[in-house]
């Protein structure tokens, strides 16, 4: 998430007028941080904990992503919990609630508008 936040700064050259006289011509789409998120989601307990934290979900869904597949993967895994006695996962309520609240707060970013 921090990597994505830092790389996103290149899309906003107007916030750094002392660095860029005009829009930079070397913008590189960052799809790597989405892949990192996807990998991090394989630790489901940690993903459950992170997505239950409203500060984290606010940062996660308040971003623009070059490719949202990694975010979707992380959210999908982190909002699911699989108790040892069950073969299939069930929705993990605290994470689902925090994610949907953040999605409502960042409706424009999620919709890409």
């Amino acid at each position: 998430l921090t990597v994505q936040e830092r790389s996103s700064e290149q899309y906003r050259p107007d916030t750094f007028p002392w660095v860029f006289d005009s829009a930079p011509d070397d913008i590189v789409e960052n799809t790597g941080s989405g892949g990192l998120l996807s990998g991090a989601g394989r630790n489901q307990d940690t993903a459950n904990d992170l997505l239950s934290d409203s500060d984290f979900t606010d940062r996660l869904l308040g971003r623009q992503w070059g490719d949202s597949a990694g975010v979707a993967d992380f959210v999908g895994r982190g909002t699911t919990h699989r108790p040892p006695e069950l073969d299939n996962g069930v929705v993990y309520g605290p994470a689902r609630d925090a994610v949907l609240a953040a999605a409502d707060d960042h409706e424009d970013q999620v919709a890409g508008s």
Binding site: W65, S68, A69, G76, V99, V110, A111, G112
Partner: peptide
Amino acid sequence: VDHPELRDVLDGLRD
């Protein structure tokens, strides 16, 4: 930037 994959997951959670 559109986020179709993310929207699909969120729609699933809302359901």
